[in-house]
Amino acid sequence: MSDLRSAPAPGLSDADHLRGDPAWPLVILYADFTCPRCALAHERLRGAPLRVAFRHFAIAAKHPRAVPLACAVEAAGRQGRFWELHDALFADPAHTDDPHLWAHAGALRLDLERFERDRRSQAVAELVREQTRAGMRAGVAVTPTLIAGGTFAPGPPDAELIARLTG
């Protein structure tokens, strides 16, 4: 069991998936692949000059596919295709069952056997669980939540927030 008392959001680590120029302002995004508002956040952030660190906030009680999808994207990441599957799931949120994951894996030329093994592994499940619980300890309560410079912004970022974040 985890200690869920308040604690600051962890700093960047090897477990984080980062996208964007290292010179751009950093935002940490806690999100869930079953969350339509997260897909909207993804769309709004993708063209912005921001360095995004994606972290899972996968609540099993919220959606039965929340944790399986988070694990699948982590498994793709173990073959260097984290962001590709991340983008594919947000682009097609109505197709997230296992056969759809296998189709994505094929399109991304993943080693399917390894993908299956990794996405069902204890290590990947633990990583997703730990990121989610670290988010809870930091005060994340909804998805998406952006953290930038210690400031929390729940909900999809609007143009004004993105302009402020990009400075």
């Binding site: 869920l4 008392r5 308040s6 005060g139 309560a141």
Partner: peptide, 13 residues
């Protein structure tokens, strides 16, 4: 405003 779960665990102390 949704109070985070962390607040409950702080409160339990």
């Amino acid at each position: 405003e949704l109070p985070g779960a962390n607040l409950i665990f702080d409160g339990l102390d």
